[in-house]
Simulated assay, not measured.
Amino acid sequence: MSEVRVWGLICPGRTEEIGRVRRWTRDILSDHPSADDAVVIVSELGTNALLYTASGQENGVFQVALALSDHVLAVSVTDAGDSATIPGSPPRTRRRCTAGASAWSAPSRTTSPSTTPAKATPSPPN
């Protein structure tokens, strides 16, 4: 059975925290082949949390979690939930992207507060 290692970070809802989240992710995953992809994903999801949810409002927070095993790297960002007063909130749709040797996927967001997970699994050998 593969050991799973988990890290978590709770951040104030300020834009300068996005840089801290990127550095934190890069430091933890420094030797992982999907580290650069994970940094981009936490940056994007964290920024969306600040721009489009209550996380970016006064006293808002968001949380980042990383889980790593021999078979998967999971990244998630939890926001403070919807805010009806924030214009231009993007639709919560299913996202999937392929980057490097990993396939990343994120399911639809349907709850408030919301956690958006992304999971990387190794590509099969050629």
Rank of each mutant, 00 (worst) to 15 (best):
R26W: 10
A120Q: 07
R92H: 12
P122C: 05
R92E: 09
G88E: 03
N48S: 02
V64G: 06
G19K: 06
Q57C: 06
Q63N: 00
F62K: 01
T93R: 07
Q63G: 05
R22W: 11
F62M: 04
A84F: 13
C97Q: 12
V61S: 09
L73Y: 09
G100P: 07
L51I: 00
G88P: 09
F62I: 03
K119Q: 12
Q57W: 01
S89N: 07
R22E: 15
A54S: 14
G46T: 02
P107R: 13
T47Q: 08
S89R: 15
L68R: 13
P91C: 09
R95W: 15
R96W: 05
W104V: 08
P33T: 03
L73P: 09
V21T: 08
A67R: 14
A99M: 14
H32K: 04
W104G: 06
V39H: 05
V21Y: 01
L45C: 07
I18R: 04
D70Q: 12
G81P: 06
T111F: 02
T47S: 09
S30H: 10
T98M: 07
P117A: 06
S123T: 14
G19F: 05
T98E: 14
A101P: 00
S123G: 11
K119H: 09
I28E: 01
A38G: 06
S102F: 03
N59I: 00
T98W: 11
R14P: 01
P113F: 04
P113K: 05
P91Y: 04
L68E: 15
T93K: 07
I86N: 05
L45F: 13
S83K: 10
A65H: 12
P113D: 03
A65C: 09
R22Y: 11
T78K: 04
S108H: 06
W104E: 04
A38T: 04
S105E: 10
A49E: 10
T121S: 15
V39D: 10
S83A: 15
T78I: 01
R94Q: 11
S89W: 07
D79Y: 05
S76G: 13
D82R: 15
A74N: 02
G60Y: 04
C97A: 13
A118K: 00
R109S: 11
Y52C: 06
A120S: 15
T25E: 13
S43K: 02
F62C: 01
T111S: 09
S89A: 15
L66T: 00
P91Q: 10
Y52V: 04
E58H: 10
D82E: 12
S69V: 10
A101N: 09
E16F: 08
T15D: 07
A35S: 13
R22P: 00
P117F: 00
V64E: 02
E58F: 11
P122I: 06
V75Y: 11
S30F: 11
I41E: 02
F62T: 01
S108R: 11
V40D: 08
S102I: 02
V42T: 10
T85K: 13
P87S: 07
G81F: 05
Q63A: 14
R96T: 14
H71N: 14
P107F: 13
A84C: 08
S83F: 02
A106H: 07
A54N: 03
H71P: 00
F62H: 04
S114L: 08
I86Y: 00
S114Y: 00
A80E: 08
T98Q: 14
P107S: 15
G81Q: 05
S30Y: 11
